[in-house]
């Protein structure tokens, strides 16, 4: 699999896919997309990178252990639900705020953080499985 063309194209492909995954994640509330699909795209991006350059390279570029990312995602999702207790509404009720930054209105919500949590869980879990499988192939 480590042809010259693939190895040259892989970094660009990976970066584009990661960027796209974040785009898909954020637009998910109004257009097709969301945390789950975004996470899958990001996971395949890392898989491509891993096939091209090997597992150690991916682990180095990810910095955190994928399972730690997954755990953080779950934590974030739960935390975004807990915030509703502060406002005395049931667990996981979406809370919205629309602050104005440099003249542009930005919609922020706990729902968005929940979706980011979903994204991180999916990326982390799938990537760690894929990497573990690839690793043994190398070794």
């Amino acid at each position: 699999m480590r042809t010259l063309i693939f190895r040259t194209a892989a970094p660009y492909l990976t970066s584009l896919m990661l960027l796209f995954s974040v785009f898909v994640l954020l637009r998910g509330h109004n257009e097709p997309g969301g945390g789950f699909i975004g996470g899958l795209i990001a996971a395949s991006a890392f898989a491509i990178y891993g096939i091209a350059f090997g597992v150690p390279e991916v682990r180095r570029s990810m910095y955190f252990h994928p399972m730690a990312i997954s755990g953080f995602g779950l934590f974030l999702a739960a935390l975004s639900g807990l915030l509703s207790y502060v406002f005395h509404v049931p667990f996981l009720t979406g809370i919205w705020t629309s602050p104005s930054l440099f003249g542009i209105t930005v919609d922020l919500s706990t729902v968005m953080f929940f979706d980011i949590g979903v994204y991180l869980v999916v990326v982390g879990s799938i990537t760690s499985i894929a990497l573990a499988l690839e690793e043994r192939e190398d070794g």
Partner: peptide, 11 residues
């Protein structure tokens, strides 16, 4: 506050 019904259901 979401137009994507599928995603709104999920999250």
């Amino acid at each position: 506050h979401g137009r994507n019904v599928v995603n709104v259901i999920i999250v």
